[in-house]
Design a protein around this nucleic acid. Structure first.
Lengths: 269, 269
DNA sequence: AAACATGGTTCCATTATTCGGAACAAATCC
DNA sequence: GGATTTGTTCCGAATAATGGAACCATGTTT
C-alpha cells in the first residue's frame, strides 16, 4: 500500500499525515497500531516531530496532535503557492455581486485543491474550507482546468482520475469526458450537472495565463432546488470577467524584492 | 543562531522554513546561499521534499516553492488543534453585530497565533491575518491570555517575550506588564493602547476553560482615527458574552468517534 | 567560435544516524 | 499484590545521510 517513502523525512511526513488523518488528538498506542513502525522507531520519530513543533504533545492526556508550526508554514504556502492573495479582492467583489457560493481552486496532481471560498452571507477566513481537495473529472472547476491543459499534461491528469460514479451523471471514463472538454475549451465555460453530488450544480471558468495554461478556476455553486443550469449560465459573463481580471493581475505580478524576510525569528527583534 | 536541529528531519523542516521565509519561489542557488549546507546535501534534501510534495519545483524557471501538501496538512491542523471550528459561528455573529475587525487567537509558545479573523466592513490594513504570529506582551489578545496563566506557565511565557519597544507605549520589561496583567485578571478585559502599532488599538477578552486556563482570546481591533478606547470598552460585554459562549461549547465538546479517517487516499474511491 | 563562467546534477567511499529487538519503567486494571 | 497494558531507554548492527569533487548544461565574455 505505502511504497517508496524516501528516507527518514518521508517516514516523518507519512506519520504527520497519519496523525492528521485521525482528526483528533491521538495516543501513542493508536498511532503504533496504525503506522507499521517498530515501537522504538515510532517513539523517536514522534519525539523529533514534537521537538520540531510539527506535532504537539499534550502531557496531560498523553496525546499527539498536529502542531502550530504547520499553521505557520501553511500561511506562507497559501500566500505564495496560490493565486489566492491576488484573487481575494476579486472574489469578494464577485461574491458580493452575485450572492452565491464562490470557489477558487487550482489543479494539484490531477485533483482539485480548493484555495478560497466565499459563501453568500459571511466572509470566510482562510483555512476554513480552503485546503480541501476534490476530484477533477466531475467538478466544474476541475473540468474547466482540464480543458485547458496541453496534451501531455492532460494525459497525465486523466490517468490520475478515479472515475468513481458519484452520481448517474458522472463521467466514468476518459472517453466521454474528452468530448466534453473539447466543448468547454471552445466555450470557455464548464458546468457540473450534478456529477459529483446530487442536486449540486455549478458553473466554472478557468483562469488562464498568457500562454493559455490554467492557473486555477473560479466557480459558482448552487443547488437544483434553488437554481437551474440556465440561471447559472447567466452568471458566466461576470465569472469570466472576474477570471480575466485575476489573470491580468497575475500576469502583471512579479514577486517583489529579493530580500530575505525570515519567517519566525523565535523572538522578534 | 540555529540550534539543536535534531536529525535529518530537523534539517528538512528548517529548510522548509527557509523557503517559506522568502515568500516567493526561490532558485537553488539562493537557497544554497541562505542555508549553510553543502551543495550536494541541499540538493538531495530538496529532492526529497519535492518528492514528498512539501515543496513544488517549477521546471520552467527552476524555482522551489512551498508545496500543496502543506495546505492540506494545515487544513487538518487548523481544524483539530484550535478552537476555530467551534468558534466560527460565534465569530460570524459577533462580526455581524459590531462590524469591526475581530480576531481569534491562541497562545503558542509564548507568542500569539492568529487563528481566525473577520474583517471590518471598511477594513483597516494591518499586520495580522489568520496563520500569522505576533508578540504576546504588546497585544490585546496576548495580554488577555497571559493574565490567566498559572504562575509557572506565566514565567515561562514572560521569558519568551522579546520586549522590543514597537511604540512608546510598549511594555519593555516584565515588571510593568505584570502589574497590568493583575488588573486584566480582575476585570477580565485587556486593552492594547497602541502598544504594537501606532494608532492601532483593541479590546480583548480571554476564552477560559473550566479550570480558568486560557484556551484562546477574542479581540476587536480598530484605529484611533475611528474609535476611542472608550468606544471599544463599550464592546467588551458582547465580546465577553461571545467568549463565554465559545467556552461553553468547547467544554461540551468531546472528540467524536474513534474511527480512522485517512486523510488523502490518492484516488478517492 | 572557442574559452569561461555560473548554476545545477551525479558519484561514491566515509561517517554518522537511524533502526529495532529486547530489557526496563510506569501507570492501570484485575 | 500481581498481571497487563502503555510508554521509555539501550545499544550493536544496518542503513541512510554526508559532502568533496567531478561532471554536465546553460548562458557569457572576448
Amino acid at each position: 500500500m505505502d511504497k517508496p517513502a524516501d528516507g527518514t523525512v518521508g517516514k516523518a511526513l507519512t506519520l504527520l499525515d497519519e496523525v492528521a488523518g485521525y482528526g483528533r488528538p491521538v495516543r501513542f498506542a493508536e498511532i503504533l497500531a496504525g503506522a507499521d513502525l517498530p515501537k522504538a522507531t515510532l517513539y523517536r520519530l514522534l519525539q523529533t516531530l514534537v521537538s520540531q513543533r510539527m506535532l504537539a504533545y499534550d502531557e496531560a492526556d498523553h496525546t499527539y496532535a498536529l502542531g502550530s508550526r504547520l499553521i505557520r508554514l501553511a500561511h506562507a504556502a497559501w500566500q505564495q503557492t496560490t493565486l489566492a492573495p491576488l484573487a481575494r479582492a476579486h472574489l469578494d467583489r464577485l461574491s458580493e455581486a452575485i450572492g452565491e457560493t464562490v470557489h477558487l481552486a487550482k489543479l494539484d496532481n490531477g485533483q482539485v485543491l480548493y484555495i478560497d471560498k466565499r459563501n453568500a452571507r459571511r466572509p470566510i477566513p482562510m483555512f476554513s474550507d480552503a485546503g480541501k481537495i476534490g476530484p477533477a473529472y466531475c467538478t466544474g472547476v476541475g473540468k474547466a482546468m482540464l480543458a485547458h491543459l496541453d496534451a501531455p499534461a492532460l494525459e497525465k491528469a486523466l490517468a490520475q482520475q478515479s472515475w468513481y460514479p458519484h452520481t448517474p451523471a458522472t463521467h466514468v471514463s476518459a472517453g466521454t469526458l474528452r468530448r466534453e472538454l473539447a466543448g468547454i475549451r471552445e466555450s470557455g465555460v464548464a458546468f457540473d450537472r450534478e456529477e459529483h453530488e446530487p442536486t449540486i450544480i455549478c458553473v466554472a471558468v478557468p483562469i488562464l495565463d498568457e500562454a493559455g495554461r490554467p492557473l486555477g478556476a473560479l466557480s459558482v455553486t448552487s443547488s437544483t432546488l434553488r437554481h437551474s443550469l440556465a440561471d447559472l449560465a447567466a452568471l458566466a459573463p461576470s465569472l469570466a470577467e472576474t477570471a480575466a481580471a485575476i489573470a491580468r493581475e497575475a500576469a502583471a505580478f512579479t514577486f517583489p524584492g529579493a530580500s530575505r524576510a525570515p519567517m519566525h525569528g523565535g523572538t522578534n527583534a
